[in-house]
C-alpha cells in the first residue's frame, strides 16, 4: 500500500515538475540586453479605477517592443503612497515600474509621505484627464456663473460631491473657493463612481468630476455640464464653456487635471531609461491607443524626461499652493522647496 502510494505521488511529481519547467522555459526567451526577465508593474490604485484602466491599456502595446512581459499588480493604499515608496525602495534596475497618477505630488504637503515624483524618472506621462463641473438636471443652473451666484444667495444649502483633501473634486472646489464667498456643503465620496451615482440620484447637487465617468451621462441628458476645467473649449465637448469664460481669474491655475504616467527610480541606468522611454513613446503613439485615450476622455501627452518634469513641477506648484491657501495642507509647500506659481 505504502509503496503504491509513493509510486503514484512520484509519477505525479515528475509530471507536474515537468510541466512547470516546460511552461517556464517556453515563457522565457533568451535575451542579452535589458530587459532579460519579466518586469513588474505596480499600479498605485485599485482594479477598475482610471489609473488601472490606463495602465492596463498601454501595457500590451509596450510588451512586444520590450520583448518581455510586464506583470501588473494593483497596490493601492495611502492614496498611492504605498506603491510609490515600494518602487522607490526597490533596486533601481528598471525591473519595477510605477504606474501612477498625480497623487504623489501632494503627498508631502498632506503629510502622507516625503517621496514624490522628484525621486523618479518620468518614462512617460501618458495623458491628462479633463474635468468638468456637472449638475443634476433638476437644478436650475445653466452655467457656472448661475451656480456660483446661487451659492452666494443660499450659503450653506447647496451640496457638492467631493473627496478627501487632494482629490480632484476637492481641488476644483478649492479653485472655485478663490472667487470670494463659497459656502457649500461638501459631501466626500471615495471616487468618481460613487459620487456620480449619488449625483444621478439627486443626493448631491453638483460635482466636479473627471470627464471620463460623466461623458455618457451628459450625452444622455442625465447630467448637465456647467463648465469644463480648462482655459479653452475642448473639441470633445462642444458647447460646454471653459472655466475661464465667466471667471478669467482661473487662468493661472490651468491647465489642471489628473494625469497618468509610468515612472522608474531616477537612479536607474541611462540605457534602461532610454529603452523604456523609447518603448513607451512608440507604444503610446499607436493610433489605437490614441483612440483609447480620446474615448477615455483624456488629452494625450506622451511626454517623458525633462519635458515631463516641467509639467510635473508646474502641476505640483499650482496644486500644493492652492491647497495650502485653502487651508488643507499639513505642511507648507515651502518646506519642500516648492515655489509659488
Amino acid at each position: 500500500m505504502k509503496r503504491r502510494e509513493i509510486l503514484i505521488w512520484s509519477i505525479c511529481s515528475i509530471l507536474s515538475v515537468g510541466a512547470a519547467v516546460g511552461i517556464h522555459l517556453s515563457a522565457a526567451t533568451v535575451n542579452a540586453t535589458y530587459p532579460t526577465r519579466n518586469i513588474q508593474g505596480v499600479i498605485m490604485w485599485g482594479a477598475g479605477g482610471a489609473t488601472d484602466t490606463m495602465s492596463r491599456a498601454i501595457t500590451p502595446y509596450v510588451e512586444p517592443l520590450l520583448n518581455q512581459e510586464v506583470i501588473l499588480t494593483n497596490r493601492s493604499g495611502g492614496a498611492g503612497a504605498i506603491s510609490t515608496k515600494y518602487v522607490h525602495h526597490r533596486k533601481p534596475d528598471g525591473y519595477t515600474l510605477l504606474y501612477g497618477a498625480e497623487n504623489p505630488q501632494l503627498h508631502g504637503v498632506l503629510g502622507l509621505s516625503d517621496v514624490d515624483y522628484r525621486e523618479f524618472y518620468a518614462v512617460n506621462v501618458l495623458a491628462r484627464g479633463i474635468s468638468v463641473i456637472v449638475a443634476h438636471p433638476d437644478t436650475p443652473w445653466r452655467s457656472l456663473k448661475e451656480l456660483m451666484e446661487d451659492v452666494k444667495n443660499r450659503p450653506g444649502e447647496i451640496k457638492m460631491g467631493s473627496t478627501g483633501p487632494g482629490g480632484l473634486p476637492y481641488v476644483i472646489g478649492a479653485m472655485l473657493g478663490t472667487q470670494g464667498e463659497f459656502d457649500i456643503i461638501p459631501v466626500p465620496f471615495d471616487g468618481d463612481g460613487p459620487a456620480i451615482t449619488a449625483l444621478l440620484g439627486g443626493h448631491v447637487d453638483f460635482l466636479p468630476s473627471g470627464y471620463t465617468a460623466t461623458s455618457e451621462h451628459i450625452r444622455a441628458g442625465r447630467l448637465r455640464a456647467l463648465a469644463v476645467v480648462n482655459d479653452q473649449e475642448i473639441e470633445l465637448l462642444p458647447g460646454i464653456p471653459p472655466l475661464t469664460q465667466d471667471y478669467p481669474a482661473f487662468k493661472k491655475f490651468l491647465p489642471w487635471g489628473p494625469f497618468y504616467g509610468v515612472f522608474i527610480d531616477k537612479d536607474a541606468p541611462d540605457s534602461v531609461k532610454t529603452k523604456l522611454t523609447e518603448a513607451f513613446h512608440q507604444g503610446a503613439s499607436d493610433p489605437a491607443f490614441e483612440k483609447f485615450v480620446t474615448d477615455f476622455g483624456a488629452i494625450q501627452m506622451n511626454v517623458s524626461g525633462e519635458e515631463a518634469n516641467v509639467f510635473l513641477k508646474k502641476w505640483q506648484s499650482v496644486t500644493t499652493w492652492l491647497l495650502h491657501d485653502a487651508g488643507a495642507t499639513k505642511t507648507s509647500p515651502e518646506a519642500f522647496g516648492i515655489e509659488r506659481p
Partner: peptide, 25 residues
C-alpha cells in the same frame, strides 16, 4: 520519501497555478 514527493508535487502545482497561470509575483 513520501514527504519528499508530496512536497515536490504540491510545490509544482502551487507554482504553476500562482506564478505561471495567474502571474502572481
Amino acid at each position: 520519501l513520501l514527504a519528499f514527493f508530496v512536497s515536490l508535487n504540491s510545490l509544482a502545482i502551487i507554482y504553476i497555478v500562482f506564478r505561471l497561470i495567474f502571474k502572481v509575483i
